[in-house]
Nucleic acid binder design. Sequence first.
DNA 1: TTGAAAGCGATACCAC
DNA 2: GTGGTATCGCTTTCAA
Lengths: 361, 361
Amino acid sequence: MVRPRAVTSYDVAKHAGVSQATVSAVLNNKHGTIRVSEETRRRVLAAVETLQYSPNPLAQGLRRRRSGIIGFVPLGFYRKRHERPLPTMQLLNLQIARAAIQHGYHVLEATAESAASRGSEELVRFLLDQRVDGVIVDRPETAAEVRRLVERGLPVVQLLAPHFDCPTPAITVDMTPGTDAAIDHLVGQGHRRIAFLGHHGARPHDRARLDCFRAALARHRLALPEEYVRLGETTVVTESCALATALLALPERPTAILAATEGLALGALRALYAARVHVPEAMSLVSSNDALAVHLYPPLTSITLPFEEIAHHAVALLTAQLDGDVPASGEPTRIVLPTQFTIRESTRPPLGARDEVQAGR
Amino acid sequence: MVRPRAVTSYDVAKHAGVSQATVSAVLNNKHGTIRVSEETRRRVLAAVETLQYSPNPLAQGLRRRRSGIIGFVPLGFYRKRHERPLPTMQLLNLQIARAAIQHGYHVLEATAESAASRGSEELVRFLLDQRVDGVIVDRPETAAEVRRLVERGLPVVQLLAPHFDCPTPAITVDMTPGTDAAIDHLVGQGHRRIAFLGHHGARPHDRARLDCFRAALARHRLALPEEYVRLGETTVVTESCALATALLALPERPTAILAATEGLALGALRALYAARVHVPEAMSLVSSNDALAVHLYPPLTSITLPFEEIAHHAVALLTAQLDGDVPASGEPTRIVLPTQFTIRESTRPPLGARDEVQAGR
DNA sequence: TTGAAAGCGATACCAC
DNA sequence: GTGGTATCGCTTTCAA
């Protein structure tokens, strides 16, 4: 069963009794330039339909100098590989791929094996060799990393933790709405002793979660003892677990924990499981960025990022750059999206707080 | 910062003082035909290095009539979408993408939105329009689905549950080793009452897990009461949960449960959680195909498929077809891979069985 | 309004 | 051994 040669624009032209140029004109009639008569247009379209024509993307790309491929540099690309990557990490990648398809692009994810096997400078080479039209970078570690791409003329969009000294479009997220909703929810249930599990980090993005947390507590005039804040260095689950364990050993044990990432929540869950502290009866837990959350027992209440919209805007911003639809002003576009809060089953009023709730906050 | 025009083979030729044809000959020196002198070869390679040349994949593809893209049709493509797809489903997709890159290909995953929105015939159109070089189909539902691809001349590799009446290469898995190891493990721990959670299904692939389970129990001369076998119709977690709950209500409650899929294991976990039956103290649980398993509490002991190898062989088989390295015999290649068994923390000797274990086999 | 023709960047056949 | 040249399928001036 041999594959028949695919239908070409030449075939369509012949069938419709016109030239290739006309076929092309009809099909790419985007700039409103109706250089083709209604009659001809109809004939061409009919031929396209009859022959089931669809343009060859390779030929198009070659001629247009566009590969139709978007490069994606995932979170922690340069860091050494995780023992077992959490599914959370796949969430954004997946949405980017979907969004790209919708815009007529494919995405090529730079993986450590494929690209960085040859050293960090090689990422640029890899992307360039693959002729990607542009690059989306998820939480770039250093500004240099981004600059290397920009300097080679690659359109770049930064995600979630952009380096503002690199003037590229960027999409970020406002932690406030999600965090506020979470704290309102907990306080409304009667929680007064709420602890925070997070990561160290000097950049604004790293501090945002904790800052929002503090602000939300302050709104409710709730104290935050320093020992209720535990910050980890790594993303290893055993460390997260140790952090949570320390929280449990406190003389005044908190009644609820807010974890800044899903990995941290998992660590907490392990600690709680080991200490036989039941969630949510004996301890409420709020997670973040959930991929696993729904599948766990109990399903985790959590603060979530709008990954689908992030992906959508990222691709839109990039393709806008590619199509030259970039605003005349020097400032690159910045989009800020709100976080959300989803209540599931890991939060419940603390023991003996029922009455307090009834009496209102 | 404008992107400089990329280096072409013409530039390399000029730099090395040879013709484009020679550059091409040097770079594609695969068929051992050393039609080029050592001296020239050196010069060309030096030029390539100096200019940082890398061939334009679009031009290559156009000329070779190869897109370098492999289509991937994921499990359950035609079925209606899951409420929340389990991360398990991403496991194979991810490995396929990795393997493809290693072979110099990209993969295009056919998603419901992109392709089948307009009915089943449209998948073929989508793939053809994208000019994929070949297709990998994960557990095709019907033979017709596969045949439609083959009839249009697309090289196909079927995964895990092939339709043997479609003569395509296929990769399957032997459930025996993993299941045997699991049962040996449980029996060795002293379990005698082991239940099975599975799915209905008429095809050999669907039966394999249960058949292997029965065989393994038989080896140990263990009885399997029919009420210990629970088969679901759907993959909805609430159904899996109900199945497990029924098991718990039995007068002679099993001491261990083997779940045929991760979704089923999750359902069981929910049921166990709701019934306050602790894993592994009060009930041992063995899962399958784990993606989540490591992250749960407790981490689940499970029977696993070698996804990485499956992906590797799938891509290898497909590219072999593309390169015409297909065996002369009429029979397409079939590869059978063994399953494995990973012990984590969800299995433990049943209460009061310790002595039995000491005395036992 | 339409068509002829020149590429885009590579490969492969065929002379030399 | 090596180079000329047609060609892959499309877009895009530039004339007509």
